[in-house]
Write a protein that binds this DNA or RNA. Sequence first.
DNA 1: CCGAGGCTGGTAAGCGCTTTCTCTGTTACT
DNA 2: AGTAACAGAGAAAGCGCTTACCAGCCTCGG
Lengths: 350, 350
Amino acid sequence: MSAPASKSPATLHDVAREAGVSLATASRSLNGSARKVNESYRLRVVEAAQRLGYTTNLFAQAVAKGSTTTVALLVADIADPYFSSIAAGVIDAASEENLVVTIAVTGRDSQRELDTVRALRGQRPRVMILAGSRTTGSPFEEHLRAELSSFEDTGGKVAFISQDAAPFATVLLDNHGGARDLAVALAGLGYRDVAVIAGPAEIRTAQERLAGFTAGLAEHGVRLPAERIIHADFTRDGGYRGTQELLAAGAGVDLIFAVNDVMAVGVVSALRDAGLVPGQDIGVAGYDDIPTVRDITPALTTVRIPLEDVGRRALRLATGTAHDGDGTGASAGFGAIPTETVIRESTPPR
Amino acid sequence: MSAPASKSPATLHDVAREAGVSLATASRSLNGSARKVNESYRLRVVEAAQRLGYTTNLFAQAVAKGSTTTVALLVADIADPYFSSIAAGVIDAASEENLVVTIAVTGRDSQRELDTVRALRGQRPRVMILAGSRTTGSPFEEHLRAELSSFEDTGGKVAFISQDAAPFATVLLDNHGGARDLAVALAGLGYRDVAVIAGPAEIRTAQERLAGFTAGLAEHGVRLPAERIIHADFTRDGGYRGTQELLAAGAGVDLIFAVNDVMAVGVVSALRDAGLVPGQDIGVAGYDDIPTVRDITPALTTVRIPLEDVGRRALRLATGTAHDGDGTGASAGFGAIPTETVIRESTPPR
DNA sequence: CCGAGGCTGGTAAGCGCTTTCTCTGTTACT
DNA sequence: AGTAACAGAGAAAGCGCTTACCAGCCTCGG
């Protein structure tokens, strides 16, 4: 190594001395500045920095400038493809703007979510993106709102993903509409005896999808009796157990709609384990179109959300980089993200 | 809100004034310190902080203390379940130690990986965890090493996940052994005409798995001719296309081993699309045991790696929190992570 | 030929926090 | 009672960086 391998990183001061210029000049030549500096000086500084293996201390820079390059992303569970796809989008868009993404996981726990937001504020991120599903009636909801408002008051930006969150910017997912369209399509295929594995009762995304689905069925005169709605965990195992419960109740059902794909995957497995052929004996549909549902058997009917795009959009929404006319090209404004019903083998016509 | 909603966040200075104490006292009472502070003072400070909605500016704190609470995690693709599971583990272990995790994605591009490491150094993270697969013979490899060494020289810690990375701490994944065991098990089931969809030739993880698998087969006298080894992308689509290629070559094969699960998922789909019944006509095996492979049809034979655990372990290895005797309880030392062959329906006995 | 600007380096005052050191007020002994 | 030893609060000096602000130097126009 040519680097002197000291015990602490080289500072700008070191670089300035090595280059024989002042601190100010060094700063100006290394980190953009409106001021011009003589090319020969600049070169000397850059070379000195190179030689010493100097990298700007972003923290110190942040302190001095009073603004950071951090984006905080809160997700319920990073291992869930839904969230990791969104995260991929956020990270992608962030790196375009030279922002660094910090990810925290809240595990669908409002208390913990609140704590996390508090802790994250210490990072003074430029923007905070909350992707965990909002719940209704949580006692922490109000505190969260307050915390976020105060964050915005002090110059931060927040963006929500999913349902409208009052005063904050939101990438709206049209859960109701998507589920409604799906229901219409399925009813059109001839399904009549429907059950829904819904998420936890207090999660709004789950509520909306359930409501939309019910509405869509109603348009075709299909009723969804209350006992055909099973609330379960928002996970693969939730879907599995919900299905067991449903089957145990002995309902004669020709279609199961799980309010998200990971649950639907659980449904398929549960059906199979119960000796039924998913798709053939009972149709199955999910929501989200996570990558895997294309590959399971039968391929799952679902509602596509352009997840990565949603992530990207959330970031841009928050940073104010309108930047439209890219990617899908669809939906220029700030309306809800368009969803698309994708019929696959898991719901053959009846 | 009772907070005055000023234009910039409350500073410690504000808190001190509000509480009528000195800056030093405020600092001492809010953020741990060896020094004791009169309880009544402490209370006043805490209340004032509460009232003003104060949160410590972590950056400033970092600058003053000269150390941060950040962990940087580099992954190839956060949307890949392999990496997102690892990330979940890292984040989990990190939050236990009050560390914040920053995730950057490198997209399996050595150049970009190097750039990212450089950029991340600016954050002065306490530890850097590299989970992307190492490649062999990349011209950037040496630079990366240098950059990381210099990072360690200046007080950082580096941990690699996967194969031994010379002077740096590593959570060793026994790719060779795992693949070998798998091959032995499969040969034991009667498979004889084997093909491998290997990853890109330069990725070490792929190489090792291929080598281990070949060795395992050899133990049972099964040969793996070179034309039965197809190199393809490390993704689902890579597996798909590799399989198409294989089938086009018209080889009479009874088993396809894909060097990772996402590729194996692609293999299954490709077989099916070619009118074959995976598992029945041709056995399929993968590697990693990502959550989804349990749920696809046929359920996939694979090699289990406790991914979250690997993430946790990487963090602890780097922070020096030995902290053993938890979770799985398995493997106390720093040996390779134990893998386990999981035979499922995709490889019925022949 | 001189003063007004325009450039561009350097000096120094912060940014929000920690921490050393000083200094005053107590407590504990002889 | 007098002093040593000890707390514990506050003043102030940083941490690494940015950015007014000041000071030379050069270029022009009158």
